[in-house]
Design a protein around this nucleic acid. Structure first.
Lengths: 231, 231
DNA sequence: CCTCAAAGTTGCTCAGGAGCAAAGATAATG
DNA sequence: CATTATCTTTGCTCCTGAGCAACTTTGAGG
């Protein structure tokens, strides 16, 4: 058995309004691809040749600038599609996709993808919807970084991550991702120093408990307040 | 004659790989909508009920934050589609679309749009491509604002605008848009003061000539250098 | 259990740029 | 042509957050 099947594919936005049979045939057309931690599904500026759905593990989407800087654009968790630029023709990947832990993904090559899109028009419509969400998210994040200060951006990001991958524990919600201070800094557009200082401050206020690549939210409401309060 | 027809619709990404006849029938299904300067095609948080293509004039896409701040996300020039979120279901517009001068646009309502999308699957595929470009642009701008300083971001933005709407004059390239310092500030995520200072400095270096809501680029290469040089 | 590399913390310094205020330019209007 | 609203410039001050350095903590591997 080469890969974990998708549990309830009909719940995915991508497969909405497709029959179970159609979904099965689409899934069967994919090939699985496993990666070890640190390996890349694709690199920025590579020709976009495939579209992916992550089945297990976690993937980071990184963007490099010409002068060697880096930003962490998003963390992909199961079950989410990524590499959707491959749906467009003659594009290169605008980001690199790196496995942060052992990962399994379903892969559709470009030509196959085009066949599927014309055979199942709903698929294209659903893809539009997914892309629209991404556009919205990044417009929003652009506005945030342009108008809000670091503390608020960081609070929002941690809440967002908790929402995505949060795991309830007896003490609070744990962000189930190995994220260094550097990673967080890249996500909100600041430095690891400022992240470290901010987390320390929150810890002393009893809002969170911060460990090595680990964040436990003790008092979510406090973070929400920082994320939303007008100041 | 209620509106200017689209000159060469087959050149638009949206209509690629559709026959002239199909394009005609799609265009005929639209209704025209004229606005005066200052009026809005739609407002942020309104239910997304229509999709637009701008035929003449210029439209600003604005995003407001809960605390009253504002960012100028993009300027739409003819012939560009906007309001593409309407392609997705049950969404609200994430931005407001304001005419900056008298405008004409073609409008397709949501239900009509869905009919067209299922009748012409290529339309959906093309829409994905357009959305993919937008995602890329905002990912890029996010990375820029997160890693680069104001001067470079401003240089890039002005070059981008010149590329979009630049008009050649005997003295140089003029950005053919009435943009205040405030507008520019919102686009690159800074304040009108910093924009004003930066433009003044460039003017004293002979790179540009800056007027009231007017920018004339005398020495494009100088700007490119600022936009790209590693410093 | 010890060692070492990687991740995190925190003090200090400094600069980019925000924000206010006051004055100057520009364009629209009567 | 004068008036007024709007946009722009620029001096000044102050603060957020960047960046470096030195030190501490954590966890993986021998």
């Amino acid at each position: 058995m080469p890969f974990q099947p998708v549990a309830r594919p009909e719940d995915l936005t991508l497969f909405k309004n497709l029959s179970a049979e159609e979904i099965r045939s689409i899934l069967n057309a994919a090939r699985p691809q496993h990666l070890e931690a640190g390996e890349f599904y694709f690199l920025q500026d590579d020709p976009a040749e495939a579209f992916y759905i992550l089945i297990s593990g976690k993937v980071r989407l990184l963007q490099f600038t010409p002068d060697g800087q880096q930003t962490l654009l998003r963390i992909i968790v199961p079950v989410t599609p990524f590499g959707a630029v491959a749906l467009a023709e003659d594009e290169v990947y605008p980001v690199s996709a790196q496995a942060v832990e052992p990962c399994a993904a379903l892969v559709w090559g470009k030509t196959l993808l085009n066949q599927l899109l014309s055979r199942y028009p709903r698929l294209a419509v659903n893809a539009v919807k997914i892309m629209a969400e991404h556009v919205q998210e990044f417009q929003q994040r652009f506005t945030e970084i342009a108008t809000q200060r670091v503390e608020r951006r960081l609070a929002r990001m941690i809440l967002r991550l908790a929402h995505q991958t949060g795991v309830k524990t007896p003490q609070g919600v744990e962000v189930n991702l190995p994220l260094s201070r550097q990673d967080l800094a890249e996500m909100v557009g600041t430095t690891l120093y400022t992240v470290s200082r901010t987390l320390s401050q929150w810890e002393s206020q009893g809002l969170i408990r911060a460990g090595r690549e680990r964040i436990l939210i003790l008092h979510p409401h406090g973070l929400v307040k920082i994320a939303e309060e007008e100041t």
